[in-house]
Design a protein around this nucleic acid. Structure first.
Length: 591
RNA sequence: GCCGGAGUAGCUCAGGGGUAGAGCAAUUCUUUCGUAAAGAAUAGGCCGUGAGUUCGAAUCUCACCUCCGGCUCCA
């Protein structure tokens, strides 16, 4: 929406920032300065006399901001004017603006549409289509803030030189800016990397290495609960569990096509006899070999294999982040081997599992139909007809579900088009989660078939279906979605017993046993600390229930219940509490 | 991988060319407590790793490792 007010403000502020930078560094070369969500950025390059680029540091940001405000206060008009392309290129050349020259050459050659248009603010002139505010007095003096400096490749291509990108957030006024900064603080509090350590779910070791999370007892419990939930949903649709080794001869990936495409991202293993093995970066090739162990009658199809297992990918170090992007990834993977006419029904079933699963956590789902990039057919396996057929089927299922979806050309996997599910969390952020891929290529490469009604071999297709996708990534989303306050069924500790004093330890132990017998995950805090402190710590661990017991409770065979976020609920009979918490655990699947 | 920032006790952080600091956590003792931090004592460190400069380095320099913000990538 380039015409809306905020968009114009951000866009003009980007020019003002560039103007301020030019005041400080007259030699600065300018890249592009677009509007982004919540603000804008501008890419700069600062050549020095010896030809090397100067690196600016964050300390300069307040100085740039100061100069921006001074420019705004001058109430300068923002004026549009045109130049002929030849003149424009000449001007850019004189000014040493090599990046602008490149853009202008693209306009000249027709690679970039339109005519060169310029905007002037004071003495600063920039190639720009607009639109902008009419005058710098329309810009908010305290509605923006420069946030950081980052490296960014010219035109987003790592083969190009790296420029220095200065990011800013911008709003119509100070209040909105402050609200945004508040929200950022809330996000920081919810950061799964912080919460995951505080809640003792995972850890990292410098000896083990980056991107290799180690899962604690609580974290492992959480992972298993989630995985069991997925399995429970899958079991109802006829899935069977399989298991595979984590390594394979490279031959498997040469046949699947992964070797050619991803060999740099595989962890490789040399055996003592000189053979080359690889850690598996995905599971489908292994699973094809289970299917291929014997001929299948069409009557046996669909064959559905589920397998939660780790894959290993040698990612670039700068891409790692918390547990959302790691080297050892646990996939809740499944592969359905079926005839082409069974695909719709199978995809439908997977869709139901995905909906059930995500809705039970309160995520709403959006759909992305990820197709191949029509301009780069060389990036994909197999022939055009097969791709078109697969894309057509997925599109049909999407339409029949009456679900709104966006088509995303170029987002397909190299072997198959996908239905990608996007979950919206409690703060409105969107995460790509589950995926369904319709694959006609792997079956071709591995010669997977069934024997049809005519007694002939018939090529089958393969559906790849992950519900959580990666447990690590899903958990990072879930931690932030709940800010660590998991629903009771997922809480590693569901209830913490806090006796008022040592005198009631026996009674506390009795309650502990009673709850444990009913499979409630309970802990009993018998440390010699004050009641207040024990409650504080249990609250900070986001324990759903704290059971305070003392003389009154022992006599009446009750517990005083304190519920997370709700405070003291008063006393209840133990049986009553057990019933209450069990009902709450049951509710998860129907919510 | 690339650009920038940062690494001091389990955690949060102060300090800074000349004996290593605090709070919380831990351990021991005292306290036995009614809904978000009781008190005391003790212990805890190759100041991320390695090299260099220096009479002397946690502090200055370089390389590497790890983390953070971006870029590129994501089967």
């Amino acid at each position: 929406m380039p015409d809306d007010k905020l968009h114009k403000i951000k866009h003009s502020l980007a020019h003002v920032m560039a103007a301020a930078v030019q005041e400080i560094y007259p030699n600065a070369r300018f890249g592009i300065g677009p509007v982004i969500e919540n603000g804008f950025y501008y890419d700069f390059d600062f050549p020095s006399d010896n030809g090397q680029s100067i690196q600016i540091t964050p300390e300069i940001l307040p100085e740039i901001e100061k100069r921006m405000r001074a420019i705004i206060k001058k109430n300068l008009p923002v004026e549009q004017f045109n130049l002929s392309i030849t003149e424009a290129i000449k001007e850019a050349k004189v000014a040493g603006q090599v990046y602008k020259m490149e853009l202008l050459e693209e306009i000249k050659s027709g690679k970039r549409p339109g005519q060169p248009s310029f905007y002037r603010i004071g003495s600063f002139i920039d190639l720009c289509k607009g639109p902008h505010v009419k005058n710098t007095k329309d810009l908010p003096l305290d509605g923006f803030k420069l946030t950081r400096i980052a490296g960014a490749y010219w035109k987003g291509d790592s083969a190009n030189p790296q420029m220095q990108r200065t990011y800013a957030v911008a709003f119509e006024n100070k209040k909105e800016l402050e609200e945004y900064l508040e929200l950022q603080k809330e996000l920081e509090k919810r950061d799964h990397r912080k919460l995951g350590i505080e809640l003792d779910l995972f850890t990292f070791s410098e000896l083990v290495g980056p991107g290799l999370p180690l899962w604690t007892p609580k974290g492992t419990l959480l992972r298993n609960l989630l995985d069991d939930f997925v399995w429970q949903l899958r079991q109802a649709y006829g899935y069977e569990q399989v298991d595979i080794p984590h390594i394979t001869k490279k031959d498997l990936y040469e046949k699947s096509g992964h070797w050619e495409k991803f060999q740099d991202e595989l962890f490789k293993i040399n055996t003592r006899e000189g053979h080359l093995f690889a850690m598996k970066p995905m599971n489908c090739p292994h699973h094809t070999q289970i299917y291929a162990r014997k001929p299948h009658s069409y009557k046996e199809l669909p064959v559905r294999y589920a397998n939660t297992t780790k894959v290993y990918r040698d990612e670039q170090s700068g891409e790692l982040s918390g547990v959302s992007r790691v080297l050892s990834i646990t996939q809740d993977d499944a592969h359905v081997f079926c005839r082409i006419e069974q695909v719709e029904e199978e995809v439908q079933k997977i869709w139901e599992i995905i909906s059930n699963f995500y809705e039970s956590f309160g995520f709403s789902l959006k759909l992305l139909l990820s197709l191949r990039d029509p301009n780069h057919p060389e990036k994909y396996l197999g022939n055009k007809e097969h791709w078109e057929q697969a894309e057509k089927i997925l599109r049909k299922v999407a339409e029949e579900n009456k679900k709104e979806y966006l088509e995303a050309p170029g987002e397909a996997a190299f072997y198959a088009p996908k239905l990608d599910f996007i979950a919206k969390d409690s703060l409105g952020r969107e995460w790509q989660v589950a995926t369904i891929q319709l694959d006609v290529n792997m079956p071709e490469r591995f010669d997977l078939f069934c024997i049809n009604e005519q007694g002939k071999r018939e090529r089958i297709v393969m559906i790849h279906a992950a519900i959580m996708g990666s447990i690590e990534r899903f958990l990072s989303v879930l931690i932030e979605h709940y800010a660590g306050a998991f629903p009771v069924w997922l809480s590693p500790v569901q209830a913490m017993i806090v006796p008022i004093s040592e005198k009631f330890n026996d009674y506390a132990q009795k309650i502990e046993r009673a709850l444990k017998e009913m499979d409630i995950r309970v802990e009993y805090d018998n440390r010699s600390e004050s009641v207040g402190k024990k409650i504080r710590e249990a609250e900070m661990q986001k324990t759903p229930y704290i059971l305070v017991v003392g003389e009154k409770e022992e006599k009446a065979k009750t517990v005083a219940i304190r519920q997370r976020g709700k405070g003291d609920l008063g006393t209840q009979k133990i049986e009553k509490f057990i019933q209450k918490i069990q009902e709450e655990i049951q509710e998860k699947k129907s919510s």
